[in-house]
Design a protein around this nucleic acid. Structure first.
Length: 140
DNA sequence: GCCAACGTTGGC
DNA sequence: GCCAACGTTGGC
């Protein structure tokens, strides 16, 4: 199983919006970047991801799960763009901010820090565990 | 609101 | 196929 990170501007699509969709989940649409799309094509049902609020909050605020593999993005006619469906799993007891990640040397290689503009990113197992712990979640 | 980083587009 | 111009993103 792989781990990912989904970035969203909270005033466009927030964690609260995602939670409101419940187990039915929602398309992660609107991605118009090849790298991000390719990562989504690699995703499998059951993969987990961080839900990250950019701009105002700059923090990981929750955990999501992939519930449908890549399919055509319904918001465009352009067949280059695929997206997956995700659902909210649980909120972070404590949001993990970008500043906290930057302060932790073990996370210096994270895509979140290295390529801040990428909206869908892979997360390493070790990074996943560290961020979960910082957020007050017990993993494994 | 600014600006750096970076991806995309289009002319050649 | 290169590269300049341009647009967008996101941190500050």
């Amino acid at each position: 199983m792989a781990y990912w990170l989904f970035k969203s501007e909270p005033n466009v699509w927030s964690w609260e919006n995602q939670v409101a969709k419940g187990d039915a989940g929602e398309e992660w649409d609107g991605v118009r970047n090849y790298q991000a799309r390719n990562f989504m094509r690699d995703m499998k049902v059951g993969d987990l991801g961080f839900f990250y609020h950019s701009q105002t909050e700059k923090a990981v605020v929750g955990i999501v799960e992939v519930i449908a593999e890549a399919h055509t993005d319904s918001t465009t006619d352009d067949d280059r763009w695929d997206c997956v469906d995700i659902k909210a799993v649980k909120p972070m007891p404590k949001p993990v901010t970008l500043a906290m990640c930057k302060d932790d040397e073990r996370l210096s290689d994270m895509a979140l820090i290295r390529s801040s503009r990428l909206s869908v990113q892979p997360v390493k197992d070790t990074e996943w565990d560290i961020v979960c712990k910082m957020g007050g979640l017990n993993v494994k």
